[in-house]
């Protein structure tokens, strides 16, 4: 790796890191696990003047319950999420998603905060975060704010985070009884990124015959991950049947301009959004029923 020259800074505390980010603004990039930033720097597509290494900050890697919610520190690695017993019981969608990211090496180094802040259009977490209605906590030198996942992803590699902010935590409500979730992904064979990835989170009615609520997050399909509201509307309040799921899944790409690249055309991505929405919803229902 022969990047352009940069100044490396390794703050010892979050406060110190926030002051550095504030001071350097656009000229600085945060380094956490490095699995998004370093490949760009290696190719000199990214040539930040300052690299602020927050990977060593203490107290930002954790998965714990807080006030009835699950709080995940931004520096928690994909592997830690994949292997978390707490998440396995309270929010199995997240470990399931983490297990499908890249390869073992990527999962051992990459962090959830880094992945979300980078907002790669093919990243896996955004789909799950959206389907879980997670909250993203961002800090700057004057305090913290909470950004709903639904608002977080703005465009390709662009989020609601302001210059000077650091993503510090992800908060998720624990799963409710009669709810189930699944992440279904068509991976791009070279990079492992999602060509299309669909996270479905459903809450069933009494007896498991109806869908009360559905939350569908889709990644890979377009420049940003989004909530497939048309699918959600088509599912909510319905009696569960293959036809209902199939019909609802047809709306997976509604209102979306699909990406098109050498790995998949827009036409194919659109079709895969249907297929993988159906698969994710069907499996989420099975998971929800397993709970009953």
């Amino acid at each position: 790796m022969i990047p352009a020259s940069f100044e490396y800074q390794a703050p010892k505390t979050l406060d110190e890191a926030l002051r550095l980010v504030e001071r350097h603004g656009d000229e600085a990039k945060l380094l956490a696990g490095g699995h998004s930033l370093l490949p760009l720097m290696k190719l000199r597509l990214a040539t930040p003047r300052y690299v602020i290494d927050i990977g060593h900050l203490r107290g930002m890697s954790y998965i714990r319950e807080e006030n009835g919610q699950i709080a995940i520190g931004a520096l928690t690695t994909h592997t830690e999420i994949e292997q978390s017993a707490l998440l396995a019981s309270k929010c199995p969608l997240l470990p399931e998603t983490a297990a499908q990211i890249g390869d073992v090496q990527v999962r051992n180094r990459g962090t959830i905060g880094g992945s979300l802040a980078h907002a790669d259009p093919g990243a896996d977490y955004p789909a799950a975060i959206l389907a879980l209605d997670a909250e993203i906590i961002a800090a700057n030198t004057s305090g913290t704010r909470t950004i709903p996942a639904r608002d977080f992803f703005v465009d390709m590699l662009t989020t609601q985070l302001h210059p000077g902010e650091i993503l510090t935590q992800i908060r998720i409500a624990p799963r409710r009884a009669q709810s189930g979730a699944a992440y279904e992904k068509l991976h791009q064979p070279a990079s492992g990124f999602a060509i299309v990835g669909v996270a479905a989170n459903v809450l069933l009615g009494e007896g498991g015959k109806t869908i009360e609520q559905a939350a569908i997050g889709i990644t890979g399909l377009s420049a940003r991950a989004f909530r497939a509201e048309a699918v959600e509307r088509a599912l909510s309040g319905k009696h569960i049947s293959e036809k209902v799921i199939e019909d609802a899944s047809r709306n997976g790409a509604e209102g979306v301009e699909p990406l098109s690249d050498l790995h998949a055309s827009g036409e194919y991505r659109r079709e895969m959004a249907r297929v993988f929405t159906r698969r994710a919803v069907a499996r989420a229902i099975v998971a929800a029923r397993g709970d009953a």
Binding site: D103, Q188, P189, A190, L262
Partner: peptide
């Protein structure tokens, strides 16, 4: 345009 291993898939 398949210039790197991110775009050129090898079997795993």
């Amino acid at each position: 345009i398949t210039g790197e291993l991110m775009d050129y898939a090898l079997p795993r």
